[in-house]
């Protein structure tokens, strides 16, 4: 691997004395290119058949817009729920002692491991009008399964570990001396949390939120079981992609895929930049 000579053509601002930059960045870029960039480029090339106006027409159909809106709003709500409750879970796991903590800590990752289709089936069974939870909600007029609410439930499930796992290590690293100092200076516990703790965990919370959101937007396997899939009401964007594919409309499917990807990419980029900015601002 001639990583070093290859990368030396770039302006080197690296003043680190630690070696291995060329090799590791070389591996990173090579693998990234093979596994992620080339395949995604193949996807981006496909809608070219449509031309630019065809692309715009494909992604601005009312059905597509409704699906995009549904996907992004349900994903947003699910990520918001995860941000609030995930913070509570992380706090509990770091700060409190209770029996069975190790087990609770381990099951947080379950949504990563359980096949999404299984999660979808299990959640639908729970929240259907004859399910364990659904039977109590149905008389109250709350319908979860086969409505957009069901989509939020499924997306909350699959995004759950993200917030917990990004906030948890930061909370663990958090210096209690700062809190003590704040307390000595007469701050109440709430003030300490808002002024001292929260700013430090904010970037991690944001990352977790962003990842949960990004993951939720594209989710397919779990959602189709619980969504009801009614056009204009509970039809998510990935399902529309599948529908396009069923009609052998690869260009149309790829167009919607590219639109989703662009939105997600911009979202992630903004959050990564925000995070760097806030870290610098917080002096970390």
């Amino acid at each position: 691997m001639t990583g070093r000579s290859f990368f030396s053509v770039f302006p080197r601002r690296d003043r680190s004395i630690i070696p291995g930059f060329g090799l590791t960045l070389g591996i990173t870029l090579f693998y990234l290119t093979i596994i992620v960039l080339i395949p995604l480029a193949a996807l981006a090339l496909r809608p070219m058949d449509l031309g630019f106006s065809g692309f715009v027409a494909a992604v601005t159909q009312p059905r597509v817009l409704a699906a995009l809106k549904l996907s992004f709003t349900t994903a947003f709500f699910a990520a918001a729920i995860n941000a609030v409750f995930g913070l509570a879970v992380a706090w509990m796991l770091v700060r409190y002692e209770f029996p069975g903590k190790k087990v609770v800590d381990a099951i947080v990752d379950l949504p990563f491991a359980l096949p999404t289709a299984v999660a979808g089936i299990a959640l639908t069974a729970l929240y259907a009008p004859n399910g364990w939870i659904g039977q109590y909600l149905d008389p109250l007029g709350i319908k979860v399964a086969f409505t957009p609410l069901g989509i939020v439930v499924a997306l909350t499930f699959i995004g759950l570990p993200f917030v917990v796992r990004t906030v948890q290590p930061v909370l663990e690293e958090l210096d209690t001396e700062l809190e003590e100092a704040a307390a000595c200076l007469g701050a109440t516990r709430l003030e300490t949390f808002i002024r001292v703790i929260f700013p430090v965990i904010m970037p991690a919370l944001m990352t977790g939120f962003a990842m949960a959101l990004a993951r939720a937007v594209g989710e397919y396997g779990s959602v189709i079981f619980i969504a009801g899939n009614m056009p204009m009401v509970s039809e998510i964007t990935p399902l529309l992609i599948v529908i396009k594919l069923e009609q052998f409309d690869y260009a149309g499917a790829a167009a919607i895929g590219v639109a989703m990807l662009l939105i997600s990419f911009i979202m992630l980029l903004v959050i990564n930049l925000l995070q760097r900015w806030s870290r610098r601002w917080a002096g970390m």
């Binding site: 086969f146 189709i224 079981f225 009801g228 899939n229 009614m230 056009p231 399902l239 599948v242």
Partner: peptide, 14 residues
């Protein structure tokens, strides 16, 4: 129709 499943077997299960 309250639910449009993606396949025949899914509809039967629903």
């Amino acid at each position: 129709v309250p639910v449009l499943d993606t396949g025949a077997r899914g509809a039967t299960t629903t």
